[in-house]
Computed example of a mutant assay.
Amino acid sequence: MNPSPPRLAQDQDFVETHFVVVDFEGTTPTGHPPEPIEVAALGVQHVPGRGPVPSGFAFMSFISPPAHAPLTSADTAQTGITQADLSGAPPARTVLRRLDEVLPEDPVLLVAHHAPVEANILYAYRTACPRLARTRIVDTRLLAKHLLPDLPAYSLDALLAHHGIPQPPRRHRAMDDGMVTAELFHRLLTAAARPRAITSLTDLVRLASRTPRAVQPIQLELS
């Protein structure tokens, strides 16, 4: 009789990893990449018999956007964030340096939904947050596409509805979106564990993350 495949919860690398869900809210200035106006980070770790649950690590801050990317009425309509909220807030470089400094000890992996948004912001500010910029981000959107290939849509709202996860009270606020992303991550890993579709941290990283740009080799152009 062939032995059954190992379970994800038995993989020591997975058990020891501190996952940190990260979410940005931002402005979208014409002709420029998005600039963050709020960030939240929420720690998640595996607990035997409970799966990945909040670890107690949490970080949240408003961020003052640069002059070329001011808060607009459309941004406020979507997020509920007002100019008064941002008054006196530190710039992104200061906030992300602070988050980089308080990030849990390794091994750490980041988690985000549609991770290129978070990855691009972290890369843009990589000199202020080198550790964050070099840390892989597990993308719950990629994970869902692997585990649930027949869904019609993979937006956060669509996946929350599919899993019966209630909309957060303040959708499009960083901590609220981070909390439901953490719950979605939990549900997806539970779904992966039942047929043992993912049995190790190596599988999870291979299937649902990409190498951060900050650790990719620089391509030199020939003149």
Rank of each mutant, 00 (worst) to 15 (best):
S4T: 13
L8I: 07
Q12S: 14
Q12I: 15
F14N: 01
V15H: 05
H18M: 07
V20G: 03
V22H: 01
D23C: 08
F24V: 10
G26K: 00
T27Y: 01
T30Q: 12
P33L: 15
E35V: 11
E38L: 01
E38K: 01
V39A: 04
L42W: 03
V44P: 03
V44N: 05
R50T: 12
V53P: 03
P54F: 06
S55V: 06
F57K: 08
F57M: 10
A58Q: 09
F59H: 07
I63T: 05
H68D: 14
S73P: 06
D75M: 02
D75E: 08
D75H: 04
A77T: 10
A77R: 06
A77G: 11
Q78M: 15
T79C: 07
T79F: 03
G80P: 02
G80M: 03
G80E: 00
I81M: 04
Q83A: 15
L86V: 07
S87T: 14
R93H: 15
R93T: 15
V95F: 04
V95I: 10
L96F: 07
R97D: 14
R98C: 12
V102F: 06
P104H: 06
E105P: 11
E105H: 13
E105N: 12
P107Y: 08
P107F: 10
V108Y: 05
L109C: 13
H113A: 04
H113C: 05
H113L: 03
A115D: 02
A115V: 10
A115E: 02
N120P: 09
L122C: 06
Y123R: 07
R131E: 13
L132H: 00
T140R: 01
T140W: 02
L143I: 07
K145I: 12
L151T: 11
A153D: 13
Y154V: 12
D157T: 12
D157S: 11
L159M: 07
L160M: 08
H163E: 14
I165P: 03
Q167D: 13
P168I: 08
P169N: 14
P169L: 15
A174L: 02
E183C: 11
L189G: 00
A193D: 08
A193M: 09
L201E: 09
L201W: 03
T202E: 15
T202C: 13
L204H: 01
V205P: 02
R206M: 11
L207E: 11
S209I: 08
S209K: 05
P212D: 11
P212T: 12
P212C: 13
R213G: 13
V215S: 08
Q216G: 12
Q216F: 11
Q219S: 14
L220H: 15
